[in-house]
Nucleic acid binder design. Structure first.
Lengths: 155, 155
DNA sequence: CTAATCCCGACTATTTTTGTAGGCAATTGA
DNA sequence: TCAATTGCCTACAAAAATAGTCGGGATTAG
């Protein structure tokens, strides 16, 4: 029941993007460098984020990634769901339950998933980004990147 | 962000216990058999549940496990927390955050943990047990045991 | 004393997560 | 058109976490 690096890296990468929206697309290398993420690993994660419509990319010279929407309209739950395979603690094979619509257990875990997502989607990338600039937290398991490497930019 | 077998097994084992409270303690073997859990693995899990005060055990001939409290007063979140190491998706090293009390990220994940626990602790073992008897769900990843092996008993 | 039973620690196997490598595809600009 | 840059994709390898096994010790009823 823990957030893996994929999720943390996803959030951190998007924080980097959110903090420099105006400078045109950022390359994988730049993002990885600023957030302290292994470049090729981040690549895989960016692929997921792209497929989920959170970032857009352009290839070739001067290409890179940018947010697909304003950071005000991207929510943390979306990022986590995109980067991790899912947020659901239990994947109940609903079709195998004869009456999953009235199964308390099924119901319980659905509610758990919902409540997690509701909390996570209650915060926008923009809000987290603003706070991150005030608060260069880098100890422990916090998912804030090493903000000293990130220049301040638009939010 | 998923519930592991430890958690599922913990719940299922306690469901078995809850369903036969009056028959005296049940042996590991019995519980494992009824819930379809490898005996020695369950032993480890029961150890955790015991240390967290959810079950009590007696050794020797005619020993076994029983619930430490009525099943009405045992909640699913407690079981999951005891069986898994924790429910927290992120273990932020709060002491390393210079101002973790006003760190949005820290805050966000605390709220996630809280909301999960609130949901999980909103259901008692007794309630789940009653439903489980009505609903022998056994497909997929549902954490209900194979109820056909469990004789009906008190709840 | 002996059999049943829980307790405990060490070990192994399996799965998941994390990370690496390398080649292909697209774009830009000379 | 060609070369450099950059994202895209698949396969592989390493590390960590989870799942499960084993064997011996401690406790208790009869």
């Amino acid at each position: 029941m823990r957030l893996t690096n994929k999720g943390k890296y996803g959030i951190n990468a998007l924080l980097v993007l959110a903090s420099s929206q105006e400078d045109g697309p950022l390359t994988l290398k730049t993002i990885a460098g600023k957030a302290g993420i292994p470049e090729h690993y981040l690549e895989q994660i960016m692929g997921r984020l792209r497929q989920c419509g959170l970032v857009a990319s352009t290839r070739g010279v001067q290409g890179g990634y940018r947010l697909a929407r304003e950071s005000e309209k991207i929510f943390i739950g979306e990022i986590v769901e995109a980067a991790e395979d899912s947020v659901q603690p239990v994947k109940c094979a609903a079709h195998q339950c004869e009456r999953s619509d009235s199964c308390l257990n099924h119901d319980l875990w659905s509610r758990v998933t919902e409540s997690m997502l509701k909390t996570l989607n209650g915060m926008s990338l923009a809000a987290l980004c603003r706070d991150a600039f005030d608060h260069p937290c880098r100890g422990g398991d916090c998912s804030y990147p090493a903000w000293e490497n990130i220049e301040s930019g638009g939010v």
